[in-house]
Design a binder for these strands. Structure first.
Length: 247
DNA sequence: CCCTGATTCGC
DNA sequence: GCGAATCAGG
């Protein structure tokens, strides 16, 4: 297997979307988890909390920094400092999300604070468990491009019941002449289907895509689901094309 | 044990 | 550039 343009874009999208290397490798097929990680690093999209590199020294003698390294690894210094600071204040159950150099890789922790990662330099530790009576949907995390992932149980009836009717094969009605048809699809328009294939008014969203995704920002929120914490995962991630191939 | 990502290094 | 082997934390 070679790293084609498409496979690289899938890798990049899923990696920045928070998928694990194993999931990505599974999805791509023909490559190992290591291959995915190796490629991701070669592409320059590092970041993401690593289980092994989470803490960097909590002891007092943490100041062993080599002088030469301080210069060459300039980019890593702020992150390391952020970790130290986080460790210095209260010991939090979750490691402080390290700010990625670019592409705000969101740490999908549904139980965590719903707000986007900010430079919370405040002591606002009191939970303030949102508004109890707020009817707002549970927004769990923010994806690249700014779309809000829906919560694990928040699918908004994505599959309306199939209407009993005869299918209309090849005669698009005139009132969708200005809508995005199958032939109008390209890399820049949202491919989210509207209606059912075969219906006279079936078309696609057609909005401008969230860069790197096949959908617009709004539909990315429908298409991509925030991850459940480990142990509570319900596997079947609905993929529009039937899911990863079985090997 | 399982999982994770990071790193190394021979190819 | 690629990825298996290895490392190391959860």
């Amino acid at each position: 297997m070679s790293w084609t343009e498409e496979r690289i874009s899938t890798l990049t999208r899923m990696w920045e979307g928070g998928s694990t290397a194993s999931q990505i490798a599974d999805e791509l097929g023909g490559v190992s988890r290591n291959a995915v990680i190796g490629k991701a690093h070669r592409l320059g999209l590092k970041s993401r909390p690593s289980p092994v590199k989470a803490n960097e020294k909590t002891g007092e003698k943490a100041v062993e920094a080599k002088p030469a390294e301080a210069v060459t690894t300039e980019a890593e210094a702020p992150a390391a400092k952020a970790r130290e600071v986080a460790a210095d204040r209260a010991v939090q159950p979750q490691a402080a999300p390290v700010a990625a150099p670019r592409a705000s890789a969101p740490v999908p922790t549904p139980s965590a604070r719903p707000q986007a990662v900010e430079d919370d330099d405040e002591e606002e530790v009191d939970a303030a468990p949102v508004t109890p009576a707020a009817p707002t949907p549970r927004i769990v995390s923010v994806g690249p491009g700014g779309f809000l992932r829906q919560g694990p149980g928040d699918q908004q009836a994505p599959i309306p019941p199939a209407p009993p009717r005869r299918l209309v094969p090849a005669k698009p009605s005139a009132d969708i002449a200005d809508k995005t048809s199958l032939l109008d699809l390209n890399d820049r328009v949202c491919r989210w289907p509207m209606g059912h294939p075969g219906e006279a008014d079936f078309h696609f969203c057609g909005d401008k895509v969230n860069p790197g995704f096949p959908y617009c920002v709004q539909h990315c929120g429908r298409a991509y689901q925030a991850q459940l914490p480990r142990g509570a995962r319900r596997p079947p991630p609905p993929l529009p094309f039937g899911g990863p191939r079985v090997r």
